[in-house]
Design a protein around this nucleic acid. Structure first.
Lengths: 191, 191, 191, 191
DNA sequence: AATGAATGAGGATTCATTCAT
DNA sequence: GATGAATGAATCCTCATTCAT
């Protein structure tokens, strides 16, 4: 029984299902039909709304990036001072919603997709840039000229811990501690 | 013009072609036919020698791990003392043969594969364990009780820089410097 | 021009085409594509509805068994008394719809299939059991203790004539007469 | 180490392996490679000696027919008088070497093959004719004008019991008894 | 006499995508 | 707004067959 204004609901359900399925199946081997079924609609509808599979995957990627961005923004809003803000950024990266195995698996898949799809690459680069700029903003007052390198190092470590988590253990707490320890060593110079 | 003793030659060519194609195409979407063509043989021959596509992918993964292991071993042999050995390990990770975009892309693909194939997961875990044990061996005399955390941090940063390289620039030299800087900060405690 | 409710129509067409093709080609070498083409659809649709080739073959087998069962049931309904019922069973076995070369060829193929597929074996055993029980039901009042052996003998002869028909001539009339003659000799004891 | 005069040995091994494999695999799904491996040679050699797969299958069929013929001939040689000879024929049909599941399975496969290959059909027809002529020869003095029908009936029953054996139980002894009982009923007329 | 090497042709199966309803 | 119907294209894989050695 079709209703008016179903579009946003369906789109959302499909995007969420995409993230879930890509994560669960843990690979790029997800089919549009699987996603559609998981969203409770026909695969034809998925095409109706997104046109192609790639577009659907990109939408899912954008959603993940958006979720991630929100998480960071919220964390930042509650932090006072550069050091606290840096810690907030780190914590946000390993916060539950972003750190679920399925989301990590989705990220990995998007890394792969990015090697083929320029649009995916663009999105991933955007994430990198945003993280870097966030870090830089608060590192500069603390680390001075070393800020650039510090941002690179911290960003890399975050990424490394992130994908390692997907592969096995490594809990969020330990990951956070490790990065914060690194941060403090970096800031030690300036202190 | 068939010759005798072609098997090792073909296997090698196919494995190399697999790495290359997986890297170039940058995804798990490589077909056996593509790989076979790149190796200059028919897809039937690929199946003749490897049985399944997964087996071929796993062989390629083993080859990459073997190459990586050799690289590290050679670097270690030339190093004197724990600090030098640690630096050797880091450098080896970003050394040219391991750090080519195609190899990195292959690694990423294997990360994905690992989420489905237990054998791939096993191989990846083995790599992680070896890297960690290598680092620990030389960190213990220098970092004492902090060695474990140090190994985790350095390992994570290496992985992060590694996949970041696949995504864009970030040269080997900068990556090496970043990790060594981190290393020195870690060792600063004990110094 | 897709319509709704096509599924039963397509399924039926595919099953019929399967019987026809298996019969015509006279072997298990029929391909799904051949069957699909004969049914006027794509091979993809055959998989869409039946999943696997084996499932399609089994469906065809079930259809043949169903047709056969109906034939026997109809014949039995019109017969009065054990002797007449036995004759009806025999006649039904050689009645036109079951006795077409293509159906016989299909039977033979299913005999082969049964050696690999437990489900096919089950279906064939079911047919055997039903025929035997039908025969026994009416043989017991007439042949007494010899009923079991009589059922086996008649069943075997029917099967033998059946496959012989597939191989060459041997018309239905002669086959029927032969079995009925045997039946009468068997019943002679009790008469 | 190739030897002189290997040809007959290899041919024989391949034919035997064919019968065995066709029987074991219980279907026409046997590959030349499987047969060759079972015979301890390469598949290339099978082609070297037989040219095509079909030729190899036909050779196997001829061998089975030859074995069957010999079995019957030996049995006949030891029998005195028409009745004894008829019984000998029946017994030979259910004698161990012909009645092994694998041989029966091979027979079934050849029935299928016959529907495609004229040569296979010819061989099968030849077997039918020989059995019929054998039966007729000894039925004529005993059954007179009914001999023809008797031969058909007995032949059919033998075939029926034969393939039924392939499908499940039904031991040779019971089969023999059933046919002999039928024979005696047929001869009862003339007695 | 025998085989390893190699492949073309084909077969089952999957899937993104389209379209009429 | 939504879907069942349908398919072309592609994928993995198998196999009979050939050929140089």
């Amino acid at each position: 029984m079709p209703k008016l204004g179903m579009e946003p609901i369906r789109r959302d359900a499909l995007v969420k299902a995409t993230i879930r399925e890509v994560g669960l199946r843990g690979s790029a081997d997800v089919t549009v039909s699987q996603i559609a079924k998981a969203a409770g609609v026909s695969s034809a509808l998925a095409h109706h709304y997104f046109g192609t599979k790639e577009a659907l995957l990109l939408s899912a990627m954008r959603q993940i990036l958006r979720d991630y961005g929100r998480e960071v923004r919220v964390a930042l809003a509650a932090a006072r001072g550069p050091r606290a803000r840096l810690e907030a950024i780190v914590r946000a990266n390993f916060a539950a919603p972003n750190f679920r195995p399925e989301v990590i698996a989705a990220w990995l898949t998007f890394y792969i997709t990015a090697q083929t799809s320029p649009e995916a690459m663009r999105l991933l680069a955007l994430y990198k840039a945003r993280l870097r700029s966030n870090l830089l903003h608060d590192l500069r007052p603390l680390a001075g000229p070393g800020a650039e390198k510090a941002a690179d190092g911290i960003g890399a470590m975050i990424d490394g811990l992130y994908i390692r988590h997907g592969l096995g253990r490594a809990d969020a707490e330990a990951a956070t501690a490790l990065v914060l320890d690194y941060l403090d060593r970096l800031l030690g110079d300036a202190r």
